[in-house]
Amino acid sequence: MRRLLRTVDGVSIDAAYDPGTRPSGDLAIVVAHGFTGDLGRPHVRRAAGVLGRNAAVVTFSFRGHGASGGRSTVGDREVHDLAAAVAWARELGHARVATVGFSMGGSVVLRHAALHRAAGSEHAGRTEAHVDAVVSVSAPARWYYRGTAPMRRVHWLVTRPVGRAVGRYGLRTRIHHREWDPVPASPVESVPLIAPTPLLIVHGDQDGYFPVDHPRMLAEASGDHAELWLEHGMGHAENAAEDELLARIGDWVAAHAG
């Protein structure tokens, strides 16, 4: 099933729904891809297919990616895109909804869970965009990180006009030219607000973008609430996540969501 969703700030988001191959009925997993990905990319489809062994799966393209509207804000307003996808999963009848995010998507699922957990607590109830479990894979802990060559290339892509042109025409990613104002809460600032929602942090010890101090910072910020998997030999995000790891993530979600 394919559908165009509308975010609270008016951006159209291309989304797809798959009931899964062995669904547990009331559980859905919303997959949040990494920067320059989209719901049609082979690595995103593969991840969704493996996770679909445990649950129904919603995939979507972040703003500025694929067939979605708008321009990428590289992790800021993307929380609205994820909220729209989670709300759609609830609309489809799923009582339990978990998010699994990779790289930029990994930072977004953390910020989204913190925002909607806080909103639900403030109003003595949970919003339709709240989640029952969160998995963050290969996410940064802090913003503006330039400590690796791949991240220096990402910053060039985002901050330079010629880089944004490469993103648009070479990577099918339309990037907003404005800087963040205000700067959103970082992933490490968001993590403490997620509890008691179950949280799994997954990271490869060979990640070329974010070294292992990032997942360790996130786990420490959780106050021992989060579970941390440091995967031996794994690189970065969806492309590096083997089917066996994705299957373990799916099993963890099925056991911890709700």
Rank of each mutant, 00 (worst) to 15 (best):
Ala118Thr: 14
Gly64Lys: 10
Arg126Asp: 15
Pro140Gln: 13
Arg2Gln: 14
Phe210Tyr: 13
Glu91Gly: 14
Ile175Val: 15
Arg2Gly: 15
Arg248Tyr: 11
His94Lys: 04
Ala219Asn: 12
Ala83Met: 06
Ala85Asp: 07
Val158Gln: 09
Ser107Gly: 15
Gly233Leu: 09
Ala133Arg: 04
Ala129Phe: 01
Ala47Met: 14
Ser68Leu: 11
Ser136Ala: 15
Ala139Thr: 04
Ala165Asp: 05
Thr127Ile: 09
Gly93Glu: 12
Ser121Asn: 12
His225Arg: 12
Gly106Val: 03
Arg216Thr: 07
Trp88His: 09
Leu228Ser: 10
Gly10Arg: 10
Val183Tyr: 07
Arg46Gln: 07
Val154Ala: 15
Arg178Lys: 14
His123Gly: 12
Gly70Phe: 08
Pro187Leu: 06
Ala119Ser: 12
Ala149Val: 15
Leu5Asp: 07
His116Gln: 09
Val11Ile: 15
Gly106Thr: 04
Arg126Ile: 07
Ala237Tyr: 01
Arg53Asp: 14
Ala257Tyr: 03
Ile13His: 04
His116Met: 08
Leu115Trp: 01
Met1Ile: 11
Trp88Pro: 02
Arg160Cys: 10
Gly66Tyr: 06
Gly66Pro: 08
Pro215Met: 03
Val109Asn: 00
Leu92Gly: 02
Pro42Val: 12
Glu244Thr: 12
Val191Lys: 00
Glu220Met: 05
Val162Asp: 12
His203Pro: 03
Ala15His: 05
His236Ile: 09
Gly258Ala: 14
Tyr209Cys: 13
Ala254Trp: 02
Ala89Phe: 08
Val191Glu: 01
Ala118Gln: 13
Leu27Phe: 09
Thr173Ser: 14
Leu4Glu: 15
Pro140Val: 04
Pro19Gln: 06
Ser121Ile: 08
Ala149Cys: 02
Ala15Arg: 03
Val212Cys: 13
Pro198Val: 00
Leu228Pro: 08
Ala114Met: 00
Ala48Ile: 08
Ile13Asn: 06
Ala240Trp: 07
Val50Lys: 11
Gly25Ser: 06
Ala113Cys: 02
Thr127Ala: 10
Ser138Trp: 02
Asp81Gly: 10
Leu4Gln: 13
Thr7Gln: 04
Ala119Ile: 06
Ala141Asp: 04
Val86Pro: 05
Ala15Lys: 05
Leu246Tyr: 03
Ala87Glu: 14
Val11Tyr: 09
Val50Leu: 13
Trp88Gly: 07
His176Lys: 13
Glu179Trp: 14
Leu228Gly: 07
His155Phe: 11
Leu5His: 06
Val154Gln: 06
Arg53Ile: 00
Tyr169Val: 11
Arg71Leu: 12
Ser72Phe: 02
Ala47Phe: 10
Ala226Thr: 01
Phe35Asn: 05
Ala185Asn: 09
Gly93Phe: 12
Ala113Met: 00
Gly66Gln: 05
Leu5Ser: 08
Pro161His: 11
Pro182Ser: 08
His94Gln: 05
Ala237Gln: 03
Glu128Arg: 14
Val57Leu: 10
Arg126Gly: 10
Gly20His: 04
Asp207Tyr: 10
Pro187Thr: 10
Asp224Asn: 14
Ile29Ala: 06
Thr21Met: 04
Arg71His: 10
Ala255Pro: 02
Met104Cys: 05
Ser61Leu: 07
Ala114Tyr: 00
Val162Lys: 12
Arg111Ile: 01
Arg117Thr: 00
Leu218Ser: 02
Gly52Asp: 13
Glu244Tyr: 03
Ala98Ile: 04
Glu231Asp: 05
Ala165Leu: 15
Ile194Val: 11
Gly233Phe: 04
Ile29Tyr: 03
Glu128Pro: 14
Ala226Cys: 06
Leu245His: 04
